[in-house]
């Protein structure tokens, strides 16, 4: 039986879909079978981030409504073995699927794949309840900002009420800004949310360009700082490693400054 992990945040635009794509690709690279479920009904995104938008025929709502089998709707990623996408519907309402129906769907997928990663929509309403319904575990993504952390705290409370074990990914950390005292550090975020940290992902241009290309950074050849962070997170998810790497990608000038003794190490 596989593990179903929902990736959620409360606030929109903090990196849930980016995390699903990169973590999924990284788990598949490690030899695990992975299905990415886009649970954002009406606003599908994971397909374009994965670069699989041209291959969609059926989607999640089709399966739930019995219009096709799960096998038919799943898209196999040809770049890597064992990676599949279950796209969401772009034309249905969030209410067209119930939490019970999602739970059944996720349970069926868990029977066939090692990891079921569920990309949750923003908010805490029906879309959220659907996405967490079948989840065994949750990853909360938060950026080091007041509004993101506030919403994350709300979601953490809802997940705790459902008894879903939850860990944290701190996204879009700029080591340089943290150093200047202009950004909350990953330790600040951990302390405020009292969550176990799964990993910290640096603010990285490679994410933007890989999203443009529809190629997750962890599948791209060159090792970007963000890709390394996601690979580290994947090893933590599988339990291969226990320790968390701190956000890499300290700015060039900070490194130079340190080498010259201009700023404290």
């Amino acid at each position: 039986m596989g593990r179903a992990i929902v990736i959620t945040s409360g606030k929109g635009g903090v990196g849930k879909t980016t995390t699903a794509a990169n973590l999924g690709a990284s788990l598949a690279q490690r030899g695990h079978s992975v299905v990415l479920v886009d649970a954002d009904i009406g606003l599908r995104n994971l397909d374009v981030v994965m670069g699989l938008e041209n291959r969609i025929v059926y989607h999640l709502v089709d399966i739930v409504r019995g219009r096709c089998t799960a096998q038919k709707a799943l898209i196999r990623d040809r770049r890597i073995d064992n990676l599949y996408l279950l796209p969401s519907s772009q034309s249905d309402e969030k209410e067209s699927v119930s939490p019970d129906e999602m739970r059944d769907l996720v349970r069926a997928l868990k029977g066939a794949y090692d990891y079921v990663l569920i990309d949750c929509p923003a908010g805490i309403e029906q879309g959220f309840r659907n996405a967490v319904a079948g989840a065994d575990e949750a990853i909360v993504v938060a950026t080091p900002e007041v509004s993101s952390i506030r919403d994350a705290d709300r979601v953490v409370g809802l997940l705790a009420a459902e008894d879903i074990p939850t860990r944290l990914i701190c996204n879009r950390i700029s080591a340089e800004m943290v150093k200047r005292g202009d950004m909350l550090s990953q330790d600040d975020v951990i302390e405020i949310l009292s969550l176990e940290l799964l990993g910290a992902v640096p603010l990285d241009d490679a994410i933007v360009s890989s999203t443009n290309k529809g190629m997750p950074a962890t599948l791209a050849g060159a090792r970007s700082a963000a890709a390394r962070a996601y690979e580290n997170i994947a090893s933590r998810v599988t339990g291969e490693i226990d320790d968390v790497a701190v956000a890499q990608g300290i700015g060039f000038f900070a490194r130079i400054g340190r080498a010259l003794g201009l700023s404290p190490a």
């Binding site: 900002e145 200047r180 005292g181 950004m183 909350l184 600040d188």
Partner: peptide, 21 residues
Amino acid sequence: ARRASREEAKGRLHLVLAHDR
């Protein structure tokens, strides 16, 4: 002023979360 922005965020968060919770 620079250093304060992170500290300010922390202080505001503690207050906001206390009331939310």
